[in-house]
Amino acid sequence: MTHSTTSTPYAPELGKVAEPGSVPPAAGPRRPVLRRLGDWLSAVVFTVPALALFGLLVLVPMGYAFYVSFFDWGGFGSPTDVTGFGNYTRLFEDPVFLGDLWRGGLLIGFSIALQLPFALAMAVLLNQELRGRAVYRMLFFAPYILSEVITGVLFGMIFAPGDGLADRLLGAVGLDGLGGEWFAGRDTVLPTLFLVMTWKYFGFHMMLYLAGLQGIPAELYEAARIDGAGTWQRFRHITLPLLAPTLRISAFLSVIFSIQLFDLVWVITTGGPDHASETMAISMVQYGFKRYQMGYASAISVVMFLISLVFALAYQRFVLRRDTEGALTTMRANR
């Protein structure tokens, strides 16, 4: 941005230089130096407040959590009881935390294998000429706007065993057998939770895909159709490859969402029954603010951060490489 704004004034300037004998050549190089200083000044003025806030509110607490994770600390006074890597070794012996990892992996797998394809199907469907298309788009996107807490309370009531809407509806059409414990059963809680997550988040991914689909030129489809390509072939060889950058980003976001999943689960089950829906973020809150084992909770937060960081870096390096490379090379060319 700064590059474009500073470079525009050059144009009339160059025009002036081109005027015969009006400007001495010595004045040429001096002005850019001043300008560069001005650039630095404005960069400093603009970034320092933001950096200071970012440092104070993000980096310092992160560093402190990292520091605290090496202590056995209850939150009173300052941490003094050093345990070294004790909290970390404890993590990997804690069945609850290992369960968190397993459940997180499961949710990620479900999201990628079921939720995203579903969102893609809906996006392709709503990209057609369809009566009331805008209404459908809005309806499917609406759950994403709803707050997590409202969603949680709502589905807590819908899936109340016995009296809830879900069981009543199933009963009314003679499918009582399909009803059951929902959030109250150790085996049913994760699938039910995933159902709610899909309902809530697929609209977001659908919107991303719709935006991506808009960017695919209609000429390609037209040409393919003339060449005799069928619906599937057009989807497989035009839509999918051209939508790939969007798909990669949406999968990335989906994984990060799953790793940090907290509020929805907290409201519906608080991680229960018997830890069957607990996520890393929930364990962190349970240990930190219910048991006052701040050191251990900090260790969980550090591991969560590391998992997210390693995943994000690896994903950028190996999966998003082509997408980001384009951007980087353009930036370099601009410079």
């Binding site: 109340a160 065993p161 016995g162 414990e181 929902w182 959030f183 109250a184 059963g185 150790r186 809680v189 089950t269 229960g272 029954p273 018997d274």
Partner: peptide
């Protein structure tokens, strides 16, 4: 206990 008590 009542039905679904683990989630109640």
């Amino acid at each position: 206990f009542q039905k679904g008590f683990l989630g109640a």
